[in-house]
Amino acid sequence: MLPAGFQFSQSTLQDYVDCPRRFQLRYILRQAWPGVRTEPLQQHERHMDRGVQFHRLVQRHQLGIPVEQLERGLDEELAGWWRAYLGFDLLHSMLGRRYPEITLSADLSGARLLAKYDLLVVSPNQGITIFDWKTSLKPLRREFLLKRLQTHVYPYILARSGGGLLGTEISPKQITFCCWNTAAPSEPVIIQYSQEQYQQDESYLSGLLAALRAEVERGPAVWVLTADEHRCRFCEYRSLCGRGEVAGNFEEMDDFGDEIDPSVADFGLVDVEEIGF
């Protein structure tokens, strides 16, 4: 059974598409399993941290914190990314209200779908542009992007629930998805959304959710493991599934195999932690 209040996101759905068993372990059983995802661990972790720092830097900038206060203390790598971001004219020349780090959600076939956007720029006459920051090691490939759930979930949810931001109903063709990568800052991948794509996405996502539900209803049996064992090299459940001992090298990982699920990166409900006396 899915946990009460479960919300689907692009990363949870991507997990299901990549490996149903991984979805079952992570989200149905919520099984913590401390295997190594990728090696070298420290290098991977450092890269992830950098990604988080960069996202925060951009968020701060978009909220109006002066540039000179943001630039202090940046190391060479971050400073390089930062300069590239400041040179991203498409974004900086764009007029409209900016919503950094905003989360939207919509219901699809009785399931709640959620998307956490790095930045939405709402231009009353031009529509809404989704900006997504990537800090991948390699330049983005458009065809790879088109296969990722994110490319479909983000514009779809915006089309469903972004009308409030625009002040009027939003048409899919008013949505642009712009993926910008620090590894190739002058070559953002820009995807124009459309009514046709919206309908295809709705049908695809509904089908995916229906398949997932059917799987849930089948009960506690072990869900299908991915046929692509290469994926298992980058999965913490490798040993539980009997799919190898050693983690793969993170430089060989798919471009966004290390995305952070927004549901785990939110600190809104930080407790006053209970201290044991």
Partner: peptide, 30 residues
């Protein structure tokens, strides 16, 4: 918020005072 009939749109913020402080400081630390 996760009920099927809950309106589509942005997420409503549920926070504790600790969460409010942490979010604010993460962004406005400089």
């Amino acid at each position: 918020f996760t009920a099927p009939d809950w309106p589509d749109g942005a997420q409503i913020d549920l926070v504790t005072i600790g969460g409010l402080a942490r979010r604010g400081l993460e962004i406005f630390w400089p």
